[in-house]
Design a protein around this nucleic acid. Sequence first.
RNA 1: CGGGGCGUGGCGCAGCCUGGUAGCGCACCUGCUUUGGGAGCAGGGAGUCGGAGGUUCGAAUCCUCUCGCCCCGACCA
Length: 571
Amino acid sequence: MLYSKLLIPTLKEDPSEAEVVSHRLMLRAGMIRKLAAGIYTYLPLGLRVIKKVSDIVRQEMDRAGAQEILMPAVQPAELWVESGRWGFYGKELLRLKDRHDREFCIGPTHEEVVTDLVRREVKSYRQLPINLYQIQTKFRDEIRPRFGLMRGREFIMKDAYSFHKDEAQAEAEYWNMYETYKRIFTRFGLNFRAVEADTGNIGGKFSHEFHVLAETGEDFIASCTACEYAANIEKAAALPPAVAAKAEAMPLERVTTPGMKTVEEVSGFMGVTSADLVKTLIYSVMLDKWTAVAVLVRGDHELNEIKLQRVTGATEVVLADKATVERVTAAPSGFAGPVGLSGVKVYADHAVSAMANFITGGNEADLHLRNVNTGRDFEAPEFADIRKVMAGDPCPKCGSGKVEIHKGIEVGHVFMLGTKYSEALGCTFLDEDGSEKPMIMGCYGIGVGRTAAAAIEQNNDEFGMKWPAPIAPFGALVLPLNVKDAATMETANAIYNGLRDAGIETLMDDRDERAGFKFKDADLIGIPVRVVIGEKNLKDGNVEIKLRMSGEVQKVSKDDAVSKVLEVAVK
RNA sequence: CGGGGCGUGGCGCAGCCUGGUAGCGCACCUGCUUUGGGAGCAGGGAGUCGGAGGUUCGAAUCCUCUCGCCCCGACCA
């Protein structure tokens, strides 16, 4: 295609609204434009990337045996009432009424619709299994949309839903999708990890997330240096410490610590490390009603709220407010400790069980206690794994490797739904023995727009984007420096046509602009292969080929240019 | 939703405190020069100063309300 005919409104300056690099570069490269908060138009270059991503997803889903459908964006409230989510989903669900005052929502996900479809059309085990997917625009009224396509309100997503007659089949399909996702992300040309994830509110046996590794990622991923283990930090288990002989208990001491509330202040004051302290956190957890609990964690460790939630069986956990802390500990916040605490259940991380003669708050203003010992000074709490893993911890799976922490962007998620929706919506089938059973469901999502954004987060430099070839908007860019020079254009056209004939999607920068101007745009847009045709090189019959990703430049004969590009480019 | 900030030609901003001619850079149009890393000169077009109300002889500027957007915290592909 000709650059001069395409709408590619690049910006020299950074738009003030963009914070993260992918958002900034997509705006600057003229790939997207914002219509409203979290709602974007895809311009030609942006759409091309979206299509590349979707095409790969589509090919691999089809290959894996899934079938593509397209469901409505607007969904009737009745289905959501039936599944129980109309009242549950909250403000994130964009609701609207039609002219007859009937309630609808704009679909943030399609479990209800697909389950409704399948319950109507599939009645026999003979019709199972089935896996239906779509690539579609969804809407979630995010609390705070940000980062462009990374967290929009309207976004393009591939969502798939599988239906099975039994657990074994469903599980097999889960792993089929897992492998399919690995193929998909590999084909994208992105550095990614499949990680074990918390199943969250949805429940179920397994859940894996697929993360594109990038420094700007919002999620933390724990992985092992030795084995295959990788998990979202929300989920990653921390092994209990090896039981070592404990030091002899020393006499309890009261230490005045005026105004010292943080672990750093107290450990610094006492001349010890933060690992010699035990933090006492007061949490409010939602059981039948909001209840205060105390949580003990080694001073250098961090509490994992998801684990706490699981251990306490609460539906919600939140750090207690000042008033609650003062009521529970009878002291200003910052001086909580397990000694003398009463009326609240106490949980402690496994690491605390291995400690002796540690330091805690004294439940009194400006007081800490030294040489505290579990069992002697306070009743043994319930020990559990409630801390976040840290880099350097032993791997919870193999035990021999060490945990390392990476940042990732969640671009895909697979999980077993079980019978939650099939039971709620009566999606049943008749089994071989004539009995009626709910189908076992799985669901599998990939954020298409987010994948494009994540690709940029992972591959960029100060000049612009560096697209991995499989999802680049074009395979190659032909850049004649002087479009008024007949010889230049003759060569440029020959190469352009040659590449097109060879099946490479090629962009020709035919604009009558200065060289520097065109180079800047080329770097910004980040097309993987650039062929520059300039008068100087052309005198020797040469053109220049430059790879955006590596920066590698080579001079080749103009007659070899097409075949050379074919060597380095991926169609 | 809580906290912070911003709305001024297409983009990035100044002007506001201390009311009085709407300004700068980029982009755009015309001409000449220039032509391997976002050119130079000259000329030109383009702004309900987010919106509504108020104070005032006079409001981008002060006051009230309102809408939109961005950033920081609790949710998620």
